[in-house]
């Protein structure tokens, strides 16, 4: 697996205890509908950190495509994907984890990028430099960040 050491180190410091080894992107089990039942880290995520991942341009940047009232403190929400208001009523945790890890299992051909995938790309680059990558690719988000986003989205209930 390819979690960068800085992310791992940060995770260790933040948690104050060692995480069990996270599932590598290639080992994640999607069911026939694209859901992933097991936590990628074996731990519950932190919804506050998930909110930050979703609005930070250099992290998930989810609001570039999705509108969501709970993050209205961040300017400019896009409208490429559906609004995520109340998304926790529409999907269960396993389904949301699957969509965030790799939405292409749930929605074949979707424009939404796969956040926990490291191969099978056409001309992948070295981040946003336009150059060829220097080694193996990291996933767009770490296992921990994905669990944080899942935890945040599960708090989005309107009913």
């Amino acid at each position: 697996m390819k979690l960068s050491t800085t992310i791992l180190a940060a995770a260790l410091v933040a948690a104050g205890s060692a995480y069990a080894e996270s599932a590598a992107p290639g080992d994640v089990q999607f069911d026939d509908y694209g859901a992933v039942s097991e936590s990628l880290t074996g731990q519950p995520g932190d919804p506050d950190k998930g909110a930050l991942v979703m609005k930070t341009k250099s992290a998930g940047n989810c609001i570039s495509c999705h509108q969501i009232d709970a993050l209205s403190d961040a300017a400019f929400h896009g409208n490429i994907g559906p609004s995520l208001n109340g998304v926790g009523d529409r999907w269960n945790e396993a389904e949301i984890r699957g969509i965030v890890a790799n939405a292409k299992h749930t929605y074949p051909g979707t424009m939404m990028p796969a956040y926990y995938k490291v191969d099978g790309f056409t001309r992948p680059g070295n981040a946003f430099t336009g150059k060829a990558p220097e080694g193996a690719l990291d996933p767009l988000l770490s296992a921990e960040q994905i669990e944080d986003v899942v935890a945040f989205l599960m708090t989005q209930k309107e009913q």
Binding site: K57, N61, I63, S64, C65, A75, F76, H77, G78, N79, I80, M111, P113, A114, F121, T122, R123, P124, G125, L137, L140
Partner: peptide, 22 residues
């Protein structure tokens, strides 16, 4: 192309008129 797996058509044919962030 790329790790985001987006084509010209994804943005400029399927989503013209929509907002992508600002």
């Amino acid at each position: 192309y790329g790790q985001l797996e987006l084509s010209c058509a994804n943005c400029h044919e399927d989503n013209y008129g929509n907002m992508i962030r600002a």
